[in-house]
Design a protein around this nucleic acid. Sequence first.
DNA 1: GGAAAGCACTTTGTATAACAAAGTACTTTG
DNA 2: CAAAGTACTTTGTTATACAAAGTGCTTTCC
Lengths: 114, 114
Amino acid sequence: MNKTNLQKWSIQLRKGFLELCVLEHLARQEAVYGLEILQRFKQQGLDVNEGTLYPLLNRMEQNGWLLSEWQTPAASGHPRRFYSLSDAGREGLVPMREEYASNTKILTSIRESK
Amino acid sequence: MNKTNLQKWSIQLRKGFLELCVLEHLARQEAVYGLEILQRFKQQGLDVNEGTLYPLLNRMEQNGWLLSEWQTPAASGHPRRFYSLSDAGREGLVPMREEYASNTKILTSIRESK
DNA sequence: GGAAAGCACTTTGTATAACAAAGTACTTTG
DNA sequence: CAAAGTACTTTGTTATACAAAGTGCTTTCC
């Protein structure tokens, strides 16, 4: 199925954005696992592919923004990998938030400038 | 010179974003040429690389969002390629604006949700 | 108790864009 | 006439989002 230019653009626009979403989410949450994030985001209107999120979480752990731990819930079932924010992640979030806000502001100023 | 994770992330975040900036700019402007855009954006705090902008403008013309025309100013000098918005570009701008706004809204709702 | 469905994560291949740096080609300045 | 400036192009590198298929385990249901 071929994609329109608009759809392709949307994909590009999400680069980097998803990382920020994960950091913001984890800044509010104790520890969550991948599928849970997937479902939460979907509820909020952000439909992310599995093959996007899991590698994303791995990368974010590799560069030190996240910590992870395998856990198998006593009650039942499957082992899950729980992610939480590292100190570096919490610190990184600040300038990332600012960068996003700055971009938004620039966009507005471009839109409004003669 | 090696880049920090944050710098790498910033580069990713600009994917797609720059296209939107160009469309917004051209929606306000008769016809502008590449270097002019580069300078305007820089004034607004958006420092874009030449090797990013020129190929971007070409791509945008190829997929029908922009029109271009070579012109050599009578007064003097170098031929310049002037870009303007096509009808498709003007139409495309609307959903793109919405998508960006929607992303921003989702981000806020992630930040605020328990 | 065995097949099917579901859970949770991983892996592979494809497409695309931003950047840095070097290159082209012309024009103005000193 | 050389040097600096204007304007655009090209090449190679690095990254990420996605789709689709794959792995391996657990619960459900006849």
